[in-house]
């Protein structure tokens, strides 16, 4: 069971992206462009729900957890 110290996987760094994308509303607090009638402010954040799930799934697949 004794293993050499596992190296940090760089895939984890992907998980920082959602924080950068959502924490500062200055980059998305606009009305236009609208999508299906949703102001940018709203659809941008809702899309990041999906993108974050995708990113998390990628990291889940790429990083081998302990077995």
């Amino acid at each position: 069971m004794m293993k050499a110290k596992k190296r940090f996987s760089y895939w984890y760094l992907l998980l920082i992206i959602p924080f950068i994308a959502t924490l500062w509303p200055g980059i998305y607090a606009f009305d236009k462009p609208r999508l299906f009638g949703f102001p940018f402010f709203y659809w941008y954040q809702l899309i990041w729900v999906i993108l974050t799930a995708v990113i998390t799934a990628i990291v889940y697949i790429k990083v081998k957890d302990v077995d």
Binding site: L15, L23, Q45, L46, A53, Y60
Partner: peptide, 19 residues
């Protein structure tokens, strides 16, 4: 708009708990 902070809030929970 302030009420919508619930969305980024729940977005950020998951990368955090994943790690």
């Amino acid at each position: 708009a302030m009420g919508f902070y619930a969305v980024p809030y729940t977005i950020l929970i998951y990368p955090f708990i994943f790690v």
